[in-house]
Amino acid sequence: MPTLETKSISKRFDSIKAVDNVSLSFEAGKITGLIGPNGSGKSTLINLLTGFVPYDAGMLVLGETTRLSRVRPYDIATYDITRTFQDVRLFEQMSVLDNVLVVLTERNVWSALFEKHKTYHLEKAKEVLERVGLWEKRNQLAVNLSYGQRKLLEIARAVAMDANIYFFDEPFAGLFPEMRKVVTSVLKELRNKGNTVILVEHNMDIIRELSDYCVVMDSGSLLAQGKPEVVLSRKDVIEAYLGE
């Protein structure tokens, strides 16, 4: 069952068609690998679907009934969508723990005014941070973490959102092997819980291992989609990558 569909979605930056008339659907309980050469529009597509960049044309369909002709960043949490960024974006001046706790804040501002975080928030934060091995670093400021730790914290923050749809923009890039293992198991766990996971990745071994379905973009358009073993052996796909 598709949980998220795009209908002829497009975005232009001046003369560049960054995303050109893309219609796609993402399914629950699957990891969809989103691949393509540099500058093919993968990150832009994620930005469109998470309200960071408004789309010029097209529509987003959530579930069976919600049709959106525009999305704003603040909306996506209410639609149970979350994401990470290719260039990690954390709350730099906050502690590791607070970076996760702030996500668990109830959305009601008045009740949050004088309230401290409840025990179950702390437990949830602990669980998520232990999952990525950052619990020991909980009192450090995010800005002081190493590159890999920053990536892991961003992933932990996304997991703490307890969303239905997750976009990960190159979560493995620049990670050490042990850290990669952690991310792999986090992604698998999210899928096994029945979530929709979209993974942007340049490493084809990871795509083969993790993705159930694979979408290839090239110059803003869809080039191919299907099972990874089929798609990755297609001649046009290989050429698109070689021609980089």
Binding site: A77, F91, E92
Partner: peptide
């Protein structure tokens, strides 16, 4: 915490709700 998150990264604060 929400105030500090907003001052650090307003856009990201939005997407985390």
């Amino acid at each position: 915490k929400a105030v500090r998150a907003t001052s650090d990264e307003e856009e990201v604060a939005k997407i985390v709700g």
